[in-house]
Amino acid sequence: MRNLVTGIWQFYVEGFRSMTLGRTLWLIIAIKLFIMFFILRLFFFPNYLNKAAVGSDKEEYVSRELILRAQENGD
Score class of each variant (00 low, 15 high):
24 T>H: 11
59 E>T: 12
44 F>C: 04
44 F>K: 10
52 A>M: 15
28 I>Y: 15
61 Y>I: 05
28 I>E: 08
53 A>F: 03
12 Y>A: 01
46 P>F: 02
18 S>P: 00
61 Y>T: 03
51 K>S: 04
46 P>W: 02
51 K>D: 14
41 R>C: 14
15 G>S: 14
47 N>T: 05
53 A>R: 00
43 F>K: 13
37 F>A: 03
49 L>T: 05
57 D>C: 09
52 A>S: 09
25 L>I: 13
38 F>W: 12
15 G>I: 06
31 I>C: 05
42 L>T: 13
22 G>D: 04
27 L>G: 04
48 Y>I: 13
13 V>M: 04
54 V>A: 10
36 M>K: 04
25 L>W: 10
33 L>Q: 14
34 F>Q: 00
36 M>C: 15
19 M>S: 05
33 L>M: 15
40 L>H: 01
29 I>F: 09
31 I>P: 03
13 V>Q: 00
56 S>F: 09
25 L>R: 05
24 T>P: 03
37 F>G: 03
31 I>L: 08
52 A>I: 13
31 I>M: 07
41 R>F: 15
40 L>F: 04
46 P>K: 05
22 G>Y: 02
54 V>Q: 13
60 E>W: 13
17 R>I: 06
13 V>Y: 01
23 R>C: 13
46 P>T: 01
23 R>L: 12
12 Y>E: 09
55 G>T: 02
54 V>K: 08
21 L>S: 09
54 V>Y: 07
43 F>P: 02
55 G>P: 02
60 E>L: 12
43 F>A: 10
36 M>Q: 14
58 K>V: 06
